[in-house]
Simulated scan of single mutants.
Amino acid sequence: MKRQVAKKETIDAEIVDLRAFCLVVDLGSITAAAKTLGETKGSVSRRITRLEHALGVELLRRSPRRVQATEDGLAYRMRVGRALELLEDANVAVQQARARPSGHLRVTAPFDLGLSILAPLSAGFAERFPEISLEMVLTEALLDFDAHQIDVALRATASLPDSSLIAHRLQHIEVGLFAAPAYLRKHGPVRRPADLEAHRLLLSQTTRGHATIALEARDSRERAEIRVRAAISASDFSFCREVALAGAGIALVPEVNVRSDLDAKRLVPVLKDHAISGGAPLYLVHPGTRFLPPKIRAFRDYLLDAFGVRGRREASG
């Protein structure tokens, strides 16, 4: 149904007249408003007079010392201000929708996930958006968007703090145990959780070389917690993966980090009939502004399409 605006509810007023009126009220001075607009004091005064005549209402009380809004003027200022903001938002939205994504895009992610997930996706993104310069900041530190000039962040976490940021859930990062076939042939298979105690474990996030692995049987839901010692521990999963490929032990790492190794049979899953705790959802996070810059919107949509979750916003955090 076509919507129409009744003529009796509108007046013949220029946008500049309305802006001039708002500035005079905000600044409390016709002279200051004229300076901001780059006009003469007389020009701004005529704009206000023209607006008052069109409305049939006195908006300002003028005296030699100051200019003050009337009660009607204050009420009108509030409503006109909201209308001007909406108009500006509409203009920006249309301009950004037509703008070709370009500029420098700064993205942060955990080191391991950056290598395993973002590295292959970055190639396709750079080819599709050649006018965007993509900078990847790979770190385990939780960088602040404003302080570190971050545009987009990938965060693997069980929960997100409340904030003005927008988060899109991409997938759940599953953790598993993986070893080279040569290692298992030499040291024997792992048939049950307790067998892990006799094997060489390659772990991250240990306490003085020790950790507890919690497992749950997929069929019976039976749980087990095994206290193990790390033969080798490291601060990132990529190192554990490399050591596992060298046949030095069983690595506890996210499945996404070793997906290509599993496909190529360089690594095989250990205790694949058990689910291992330690996984977390992976979120794409960006500022919660009403109109995202085209470069951020392009990167967000590209990853949402890649993960098959386009159009689904998970949370604010």
Rank of each mutant, 00 (worst) to 15 (best):
V67D: 00
R218H: 03
V190C: 07
D162C: 08
L184N: 03
R290I: 05
S316Q: 10
E197S: 12
P294C: 03
T108R: 02
D151H: 13
D263S: 13
K265V: 04
V80P: 04
D263G: 00
I15Y: 05
E85D: 12
E9I: 09
Q205R: 15
R200A: 12
R221A: 10
R77P: 00
H53N: 14
L267H: 06
V57C: 06
R297F: 00
S164T: 11
E39H: 13
G279M: 06
V152W: 00
K2C: 01
G311T: 00
L154W: 04
E58L: 11
K7E: 14
R310V: 05
I232Q: 11
E197F: 05
T212R: 15
G209L: 06
A315F: 07
D12M: 09
R169M: 11
H172Q: 10
V268Y: 01
R312F: 04
A20S: 15
A280H: 10
R229W: 02
R313H: 03
R227G: 14
H210G: 03
T207G: 04
R227S: 15
L154N: 01
A119L: 12
F291W: 08
V24A: 11
L201M: 15
R66K: 15
V268A: 09
I30D: 00
Q149S: 11
V107T: 06
R47D: 01
D219E: 14
D195G: 08
Y302A: 09
T289N: 09
A179D: 04
P110W: 00
L74P: 00
D112F: 08
L252N: 08
A217M: 04
D261A: 11
L252W: 08
L74S: 08
A264W: 05
V152A: 03
Q95S: 14
I48C: 05
A123Y: 09
S116R: 08
E140P: 07
R297H: 08
D162H: 13
I150C: 07
E58N: 13
A231M: 09
A147F: 07
P189C: 07
A264D: 11
A298D: 00
P181D: 04
S220L: 03
Q171F: 11
L143Y: 03
R61L: 12
H53L: 14
S102R: 13
R185Y: 01
E131Q: 15
S233I: 00
V152Q: 01
Q96A: 13
A99T: 09
R98A: 13
A20L: 02
V5I: 15
R259A: 12
P193T: 07
V190T: 05
K186A: 13
A97H: 09
S116C: 12
S260E: 14
P254F: 04
Y283E: 01
Q95I: 10
